[in-house]
């Protein structure tokens, strides 16, 4: 059922110990109560350094639950999650999470600059270094000087850039993203997809992104973990042999892309 074999050969990802190792993960809500509900049955996959892995699945497949479990926000009922070789008990220092809805994850009572500086403050970084880092990371996500404005004064796409900048500010090893582009319009979505590919290339960061959009998953990933409907299992792990250089027009219209798309659709669509 889980075909991790040979997957690492894909792309130019260097072999090494996995950054993230998920084994036999199960999540059951309200254990022992009448409303007991199994969201995730059995999920196993790993992510090596520098890799870009997308998790796709039909609506209600427990994708967000899975992300909460692998980020340490929620404890699995069974199975293990290891981050850089250590079992998760809390959110690790070197892990960054970008949530779906910037309107809910950004703090409207702080300016963009303060929002971005928050994780640095929590890590005891000095004021001068914080200011410097805020400017760096704003440039990195393609925003100018918006640090004195509030998030709600920016457009949706810019707000999600601020949210991404906040997560990048402390240079995490692994970036977990929960449908980060679901709340923006199509054009902005393409821009943000390319931004995250660029960031990944420049910062050498490892990315795990949850999405329900198959095209997005193929466009971004080195590998795709396809989940079944609830309670979710891994249906297949698909390697995406499209290389590192991706282009919104050329990549998406290539023969390989369309072939992968057909395959993934047949996996995700109910038969």
């Amino acid at each position: 059922m889980t075909q991790t074999l040979g997957a690492h050969a894909a792309g130019a990802t260097p072999a090494g110990p996995p950054v993230l190792d998920v084994a036999g993960l199960r999540k059951v809500f309200n254990v022992g109560r009448p409303d007991e509900r199994m969201a995730i049955d059995d999920v196993t996959f790993d992510v090596v350094k520098g890799e870009f892995v997308c998790i796709v699945g039909p609506s209600g497949a427990g994708k967000t639950t899975l992300l909460r479990c692998i980020s340490g926000l929620s404890a699995p009922t069974r199975g293990t999650v290891q981050f850089e070789g250590t079992a998760l008990t809390e959110v690790p220092d070197q892990l960054g999470v970008v949530f779906q809805d910037y309107g809910r994850s950004l703090f409207p009572w702080f300016t963009n600059g303060s929002n971005i500086a928050l994780p640095l403050k929590a890590r005891g970084v000095g004021r001068e270094e914080r200011t410097k880092r805020v400017n760096e990371v704003l440039t990195e996500v393609g925003l100018g000087h918006v640090e004195k404005q509030y998030p709600w004064q920016l457009s949706g796409g810019m707000q999600q850039r601020v949210a991404i900048a906040r997560t990048l500010s402390y240079k995490p090893d692994l970036l977990l993203m929960d449908e980060p582009f679901a709340s923006v319009d199509a054009q902005t979505r393409f821009d943000l997809e390319d931004l995250i590919l660029e960031v990944r290339e420049e910062a050498g960061i490892t990315v795990v992104l949850v999405t329900h959009d198959i095209d997005e998953a193929i466009y971004l990933s080195d590998r795709i973990v396809v989940l079944s409907g609830s309670p979710s299992k891994v249906r297949e792990i698909v390697t995406v042999p499209l290389g590192r250089d991706r282009d919104q027009v050329a990549t998406r219209s290539s023969e390989e892309f369309l072939e992968l798309r057909r395959h993934l659709l047949s996996l995700v669509m109910p038969h």
């Binding site: 209600g60 427990g62 994708k63 967000t64 779906q100 309107g103 949706g156 449908e179 709340s183």
Partner: peptide, 14 residues
């Protein structure tokens, strides 16, 4: 599990 787009993209500054 929200797969639906819930964000309001009210972009402008009123």
């Amino acid at each position: 599990m929200t797969t639906a787009t819930t964000g309001s993209t009210a972009a402008g500054r009123d």
